[in-house]
Design a binder for these strands. Sequence first.
DNA 1: GCAAAAGTGTTGAGATTACACCCATGC
DNA 2: GCATGGGTGTAATCTCAACACTTTTGC
Lengths: 224, 224
Amino acid sequence: MRIADYTNQTHPRVAVDAVLFSIAEGALKALLVKIKKGPFAGRWAFPGGLVQVGESLDDAARRELYEKTGVQDLYLEQLYTFGDAQRDPTAHTVAVAYFALVPDPGRTLHSGDKYADIGWFPVRQLPQLAYDHNAMAAYALQRLQAKLGYTNIVYSLLPREFTLAEIQEIYEVIVDRKLDRRNFRRKILALGLLKPLPKTRRGAHRPATLYTFTRRSPMNVEVL
Amino acid sequence: MRIADYTNQTHPRVAVDAVLFSIAEGALKALLVKIKKGPFAGRWAFPGGLVQVGESLDDAARRELYEKTGVQDLYLEQLYTFGDAQRDPTAHTVAVAYFALVPDPGRTLHSGDKYADIGWFPVRQLPQLAYDHNAMAAYALQRLQAKLGYTNIVYSLLPREFTLAEIQEIYEVIVDRKLDRRNFRRKILALGLLKPLPKTRRGAHRPATLYTFTRRSPMNVEVL
DNA sequence: GCAAAAGTGTTGAGATTACACCCATGC
DNA sequence: GCATGGGTGTAATCTCAACACTTTTGC
């Protein structure tokens, strides 16, 4: 990354920040990185970086997350653009925030040279973050909850094969309330997006039928 | 406006564009300006401009629209940020699009020095616009239609006093279908946001009771 | 055989839709 | 007095929420 003197700039800089969510250990987690330098050194924040000329915003967000997680096919959508003049004390920086989803991240994380540390944090107990990233987190969570209700994006939080209990748990963890099992199953199956597989997941108790999505692309459907 | 050489820039510029809607002559209109210079000279576009250091995005959008229309209290919300590297052939420019609403604009418009012309255009028959502004228009219309259904933002398209027929017409024009008069009235009144006034609007036929909003601030309600 | 998760239907309440006639005014 | 838009109620349908017992497995 190039270091430059922005004090004489006449225009704001453009950065991209990515709020990456996942479900792990029965809780909703977000990916945070620890900042090395500047006024927020030592604080946690969402990963991000300046946009280069010729690079699209989506590409910048995707690149940023790929560097950290090694995940290529994640769900990614633009969230909101934060442009308050004081949000970055160093120089006026407009941050285009993205919102991303991945299935349970078993893989290893790479903090890279830029950050001191990296990790998954439970979304409902985030520490005090750098910049306006706590507001960003709140906004992203709100968007996630809303979109879960009227789209099929859960698919991006699930592995290829899953049980109905697992998909229901994701809904419960994200919208933060218990759902009626019978009503939920009826509704989710009525969408016609799930195909039962001729296999079961064997565990400690009665085996559960495994399902898979017929389409893994975003669309609007009435789920909740 | 300062003219500068951006060819050696290492970072994209930031601009704000505003899609301003209003209802006039029974149709949904958008405000367009005619561009004077550059590769899009002669084309219509949404009004916009570069963001200055120290200026927030919301302020920049508000300023832009105030210069053109003289309207101070409009409904304004961020829409989407367009960041494709090729969207502006002159230099990579990230455009933060805003979406705004005003009641029927009887007032005069000011094209200013920057633009060759200014005017209201029916949203469903826009000409070919500069940049990616046709996509911007489509996105804004979609947002408007959706928000009309689950918020009370109609208030920002109506004058202080209005009849139920007038508010219904706005819904019909925007969502582009006829609504049942009795069902619509029942539902909109059930929200408790409208107060009947002890006056009527006298016209060619039976006078209609005038209503006013009890609160003119955005909130979520189930309208449609 | 017992503990634990998987699987399955029905009923009542509330919401949504469809639909037709009388009323008040201006001309 | 007639043309025009304003104003009003009900019945049928659909959707949503609440609720409990049987089944299959591992140990």
